[in-house]
Design a protein around this nucleic acid. Sequence first.
DNA 1: CTACTGTTTTGGAGCGGTCCAAAATCTAGC
DNA 2: GCTAGATTTTGGACCGCTCCAAAACAGTAG
Lengths: 346, 346
Amino acid sequence: MSTSVRRPTIRDVAAKAGVSKSLVSLVYSSPQEVSAVRKERVLEAAAELGFSPNFLARSLATSSGTFVAILVADLHNPLFAAIVDHVRAKLEDRGEYGFMTSAMIANPDGTESVDSRTVSAIIDLRPKSVLVVGTIPSAEGLDALPKKTNIVVAGAVAENLPRAITVRSDDVKGIGLVVKHLIDKGHTKIAYINASPLEIGKMRSQGYSDAMAKAGLKSHIQIVNQDDDSERESYLSAKNLLQSKSAPTAIICYNDLVAIGAQEAVNEHMASGGGKVAITGYDNTYLAALKQISLTSIDHGTREIAEKAAELLIAEKHSTKKDEVHLLEPTLVIRDSSNFTLKGGK
Amino acid sequence: MSTSVRRPTIRDVAAKAGVSKSLVSLVYSSPQEVSAVRKERVLEAAAELGFSPNFLARSLATSSGTFVAILVADLHNPLFAAIVDHVRAKLEDRGEYGFMTSAMIANPDGTESVDSRTVSAIIDLRPKSVLVVGTIPSAEGLDALPKKTNIVVAGAVAENLPRAITVRSDDVKGIGLVVKHLIDKGHTKIAYINASPLEIGKMRSQGYSDAMAKAGLKSHIQIVNQDDDSERESYLSAKNLLQSKSAPTAIICYNDLVAIGAQEAVNEHMASGGGKVAITGYDNTYLAALKQISLTSIDHGTREIAEKAAELLIAEKHSTKKDEVHLLEPTLVIRDSSNFTLKGGK
DNA sequence: CTACTGTTTTGGAGCGGTCCAAAATCTAGC
DNA sequence: GCTAGATTTTGGACCGCTCCAAAACAGTAG
């Protein structure tokens, strides 16, 4: 079918329209500078030939291209997928504005996360700006991007990335909401399962400790650290907690996935006669909303984060201040997993 | 910190090593053709300067670059994420073999899927080969790639993509396994909820009808088509089925997500005194394995699909036969959602 | 009609590589 | 020691586009 013949280039269009290649280039970069007559003639020729500018060549020729690169730390994380979706939607909207074209994702492999080769490929591509979703260790390589390139980190703490602007919700506050909620429900023995050695994990642990201390529950602080956020690990951590002599009546989890693993342990615990135990997650992914799981969780305000991030990505000039952070308000979403009052008072 | 100065180019290295730029280029493309002395000198200079070839420029200069492009139809689909992970892992392994560098994902937005601009960006990039994961409408644009570029479709039926090689499991057979399983458990009133207008949806519907007919249950065939695979839609579809006079005792779902929605309806049904109803999903995503959900599902043999796909991607020459399809064997994974015998016999 | 602004259009030099034909160097062989 | 043949290096054109300084083309004024 479509004869896989060489794609038409700017010169082909120029020849057909009877103008110089520079003029054709101009039509695509600063159309307002070219006279109406020529512009039309060029566009016509382009249409007939099915021409569209080669974005590769364009990137190479300019110091920074016309698209946004998106790096996702983990394809499996539903929160990240949600952020990417919203950002893309927002960028498409502005698309008609003119300078935004296509978004690319350089990926991840679940375990190792984005590697440095991928990062350097991104740099070669010369994006107008880069969005980093999640925490990517080798992202520090992004420092090599020209200073005019915006770097925005969404939904994570920018580590080793001094130039980046961060957009995320306030995790310390978020965990605070959870702790408060559980206390309101009559809990005092509240444990926390952490599953990330990264900055985010630390912040959530911190938030937990702070909130507990502030509520006068310092002596009940109990943090379990596990290596990853796998369901299996989480199940085991929770099981251990529930079997210990200082068993909690509520377990706050690092994220929804951890909470799901912990929930299993709680279910077993209850099935074998144990008392009710509250579970909470974090991120408010669609998993938390499933009826079968119905998990209390913290919502980041994904849409707001995405919109803010999109704005920053297309913003022409960056503020120069270091460590710019936009903190949004997290909100608590209460579901079955914690929506009961603890019997027997404190 | 890292002074964001111009990255060193091949010419910088050449100057430092006292050779021509062509020689430097050679060192990176066909190292066996350059003498040991010079090779070492060049590599040394490159190391000192921190040089690595600009993959953008390389792609532009060659008719086909040295990397694999990966297009994912839907970031939210865990099956796709799993496929991508395995393919990447496999490619990394071969990486040391030399010609494979980095993988890129051009994304999707959940709703509209990969748009044609993204596809044309991919073409501009001149990948050595392209992996399409899932069904991407505008992928037909990939036809414009040079004939030497391999196109592999994994985990989906290649529609409008005559040149592609497809790697997937046999869905007709897969649904057959499910139907057989349910019949073994004593079911005869088995319904199917379809959630995709695409080829895959048709195949699964077909597989269901065929298997039912073959088992002499033609009169019990009951297919519900819904617009998307959202949980909400699925819940409603299942609810309707269960309330109808010809209520089934088993519901086969298009995929795991649909099954989860349907499961909610079943749970409600049982809670209000209805009889047990079996539910099955498809894709055997991690969701199906969650204890809280425990869904019988069909496994595609994701790892095998990914490995086969990876192999085809790096294969030097393509078989020329049209519509090449590699069909793998699906396997049934039985879990709680259907692992009980229907009382009252047939 | 010429001089003098202001606006369009154009040729050519890159961007950072690859690739190929020609040049340089190395090996033998006589 | 000189030449043919094989092997290694090299200069330059090119991939498709942008960018900039110079050229061409108005338009207005003197």
